[in-house]
Amino acid sequence: MMNMTEKMLEQIRDLFEKKNIKLFIGFEKGFEKFSRIPAFAENYDEAKSMIIDEFETPLLAKYLIRELGEVGAGAVEKSERVGILTRGCDYLSIRRLVVDNIILRENLVIIGIPCNGLIDPKKANKLLGEEAQEITVDEKIVLAKGEIKSREINKEEILLDRCKKCIMSKVEESDILLEENMDDMEVSKDYSAVEEIEKLTTEERYEFWRRQFDRCIRCFACRDACTACNCRKCIFDITEPEMLEKTVATSEQFMFHFIRAFHVAGRCTACGECEKVCPVDIPLGLLNGKFKKDIELLFDVDEAGIPAEIEPLGEFKLDDPVEW
């Protein structure tokens, strides 16, 4: 039986041979042993290094803006198609871009793969107590071997944080499905971290967020990694009017983080990428989670974050909840 990587390569070869795509976006090995980084192939030969496994990867959807949207007519004209390897989280992000009219769905070829969570090699290292040299992933058990030690780890323990909060484990509209979608992953609505913050007094809450935001170095990685942040020109990059001063004062930090959170409120697909890319570990997921929780509660929706034509915050209604 072919493994997933082989199946993918076969499909990519087919797509390039039939001239169905001009570019394929997938993953390849990075400099470090377990790092998996985005890879771009303009022909089959370039794609040969691509790989599918269960190590942490970044999201790929954001690249579609540059590869399809930035040429000027992303949402308007048909163009040569781009193929993309897609998991559930990436799928939601792609939908985000389609709903936001940034790209046309027909300009895409989606190769869908099922996913039941990616593992974080850093967590494995931590549990192992040294840098793992070899990690083998079974269905539920992960075997990590270092130079000295070796240890069996429950996969649950070293899942990426964002995978624990996954709201979409399958790809609903793939053009090519490498393996059947598995059953829906158990989606547990875990807002306990948000609730912890809600319990704080206003002063404590302010102090908590001040501490977090003061750490911010304004690298904008959270914005740059986010697919819901798909403006042509971000409001924070516009100099006239200057919405955000370059000065890194507490007030400006709050301004940036609140406005960012507001701009993705109701549109955030809970992919967790912002939190993952933050170099100073600001818990942005908490902020996004608070919005998600409130929207679900106040607007009576099951799952805020599944992109749709009309979204709770994207509609004019006279009877909107006052609490909002």
Binding site: F40, K62, Y63, I217, C219, A221, E245, T247, V277
Partner: peptide, 28 residues
């Protein structure tokens, strides 16, 4: 071009770098 295609354009690397030293001067 190959590596830039991956780059998201966040300034993360330059801001955490102990040697990067570019700055802007602005009036408020």
């Amino acid at each position: 071009k190959k590596i830039a295609r991956r780059c998201l354009g966040c300034g993360n690397c330059t801001f955490v770098c102990p040697t990067c030293h570019c700055f802007a001067v602005c009036d408020v």
